[in-house]
């Protein structure tokens, strides 16, 4: 653990304790504990089928764990649903883009701003003329470099642009922490590099729990890495510690690092 940056005892933004979830005989989450501190990127890696998605779902509120507890900003949220956790400041992005495909790019961003603003939705006023919401939405779009495409239909976006919009919608929520499920998936080398640079800065606004397959990005970004294998965290540590961890090498990095 990087104790240098954490010298004053800080409250973790997210604390997952002894989380277990089984589907029949399959232990998708097996006594998982991890936490996320302000200003850090905590990456979660693991081979396919290790239970990353199940874990993400439990943290975001879509799936109830069998055992264990989840704490968000010091509050026990284990029993709360997705909506309540989102309102507390959990900003999630999806592995498979779940955007409103019929909407324009701007409408998707406004939807995020609308949900986060906490005011009543309004039945009569044209939401696309609400200055405050538009400002939030446009700022988020410009930060991910999507402002030029604001009027495009979301279904017409390229895969990479959809990934950018995923991140932009999360930005409009102004969350207290990000939960990002493979934001690099399907991005080209340059897109991946660009997003890596962006997330590197974003961590100072809100810490990021990052599930990612792109190892270059993970090792470049993560303050800490947790390795999930067969539903259990087998190691947590800095990039170097994880690289040199014998069990991790055997279970996961082995094939790649043999050269």
């Amino acid at each position: 653990m990087t104790d240098t940056s954490l010298s004053p005892p800080m409250q973790p933004v997210l604390r997952v304790e002894h989380l277990s979830k089984s589907f029949g005989a399959l232990k998708a989450s097996n006594d998982v504990s991890l936490d996320l501190y302000p200003g850090e990127i905590h990456a979660l890696i693991g081979p396919n089928g290790a239970g990353k998605s199940t874990l993400i779902k439990q943290i975001s509120g879509g799936l109830q764990p069998d055992m264990g507890r989840i704490e968000l900003l010091g509050h026990d949220v284990t029993a709360l649903d997705t909506v309540a956790r989102a309102r507390m400041g959990l900003g999630r992005t999806f592995q498979i883009s779940s955007l409103a495909m019929e909407f324009s790019v701007l409408q998707n961003a406004v939807l995020g701003a609308l949900g986060a603003c906490g005011k009543s939705l309004g039945f009569f006023r044209n939401v696309m003329k609400d200055k405050a919401l538009l400002e939030v939405a446009e700022e988020a779009l410009s930060r991910v470099g999507l402002l030029q495409a604001a009027q495009q239909r979301t279904a017409d976006l390229s895969h990479g642009q959809r990934r950018q919009l995923e991140v932009a919608v999360a930005l409009t929520l102004k969350p207290r922490l990000f939960l990002m499920d493979e934001p690099m998936a399907g991005l080209g080398a340059s897109g991946s590099k660009e997003l890596t640079g962006f997330l590197d800065q974003l961590r100072y606004e809100a810490p990021i729990l990052l599930v990612e397959h792109d190892m270059d990005a993970v090792f470049a970004l993560a303050d800490r890495i947790s390795v999930l294998v067969y539903g259990a965290v087998i190691a947590t540590g800095t990039a170097d510690e994880i690289r040199n961890h014998p069990e991790v090498r055997r279970a996961y990095l082995g094939e790649e690092d043999e050269t």
Partner: peptide
């Protein structure tokens, strides 16, 4: 007016992608 309002936007989004609407904090 309803279709163009915030309510209409959120309702239409819920038809297209329910989990997105939940993620932005709407029921």
């Amino acid at each position: 007016r309803l279709a163009g309002s915030g309510f209409g936007l959120a309702l239409s989004a819920a038809r297209q992608t329910e989990e997105r609407v939940e993620t932005v904090g709407l029921q």
